[in-house]
Nucleic acid binder design. Structure first.
Lengths: 158, 158
DNA sequence: TAAACATTGACAACTGGTTTTCAATGGTGG
DNA sequence: CCACCATTGAAAACCAGTTGTCAATGTTTA
């Protein structure tokens, strides 16, 4: 009657709980890290998406890069533009959908964030082995890929 | 001028991004998994907290067990009680703060969730090595502990 | 070219968290 | 006993995301 999870599944479940905890703490610490720059973790991520692309992007492109919905990205963009981190330019390919580029302030702020992040991460890894970290990254990526498969559904033969 | 992140810090940063991605996907899949039972990932977690305690808990106790604020837990509890998963009983230690216990429906539903989760996790780990999973769990826990330390702040000697 | 379809921004409502405030309870020290 | 302080539930405002709808704009195709 009762399904017996095999040993690997038990550890996997513990990993899931650990991911939840680490995720929460990362957002919390990330907010603290960039708070002096008038940013949050969410706003930081938007800056990063455009900085990484190294060219202006439209709102839907930014959403895609971030893995969130276009409406979610738009909300942040509107606020970030208000605060002077982004400026719009005309999109030759779509009149109603402007491109967003980092302003001087945006670029300068993101550079500061990268420095802060590097200092923070350097302090955080003290004593962790490169090999363990590589293995962990590999395993997490592997789990992520497996999560692509649909969840088993009652009678789900499709 | 530019801070150079050491190789460990680079991998750690990639692990952070992986944690964000896995976290998002886990919530998504968790929602799908328990949706037929009129639950969500968040509601599932509340059931789990009380089921694990094996005795009725007050709202603040549940919040503490879940690592969220008491107001956040209360919101879920109110809905879960409405839906028949929990019932209140008088708290001898506090007249205004009832204890929440799983109802028959609550217990039965949580048992089903555990079965679904076991099947899902069993399918998910196929081909992953127990040793790698253990190492990953260990590393994540280690990172979590290090995240306890406050973020480095400009001039933060306190 | 015109009709059909897809993309887009704005807006509203929702989920699941947070913080803040307030009044009611509970405990403790004088 | 009572004044003070901590805990608690309720409510409101907020953050960060979601879904859904609508009208405007692009694109494709018949």
């Amino acid at each position: 009657m009762a399904i017996e999870p095999n040993p690997e599944a038990v550890i996997l479940t513990e990993i899931m709980l650990a991911v939840f905890r680490v995720n929460g703490r990362l957002l919390e610490k990330g907010d603290q890290l960039v708070e002096p720059l008038n940013l949050t973790s969410a706003r930081w991520q938007v800056l990063g998406a455009v900085a990484l692309a190294e060219k202006p992007l439209s709102a839907p492109q930014i959403a895609e890069a971030m893995g969130i919905t276009r409406q979610g990205a738009q909300k942040q963009l509107n606020k970030l533009e208000e605060d002077g981190f982004f400026e719009q330019s005309l999109n030759p390919r779509h009149q109603r959908s402007p491109l967003y580029a980092l302003t001087e302030l945006g670029n300068c702020t993101f550079a500061k964030v990268m420095t802060l992040e590097a200092i923070w991460a350097n302090g955080l890894v003290a004593g962790l082995s490169l090999q363990d970290l590589r293995k962990t990254l590999q395993t997490l990526n592997s789990i992520y890929e497996r999560l692509d498969f649909p969840v088993p559904r009652k009678g789900g033969r499709s």
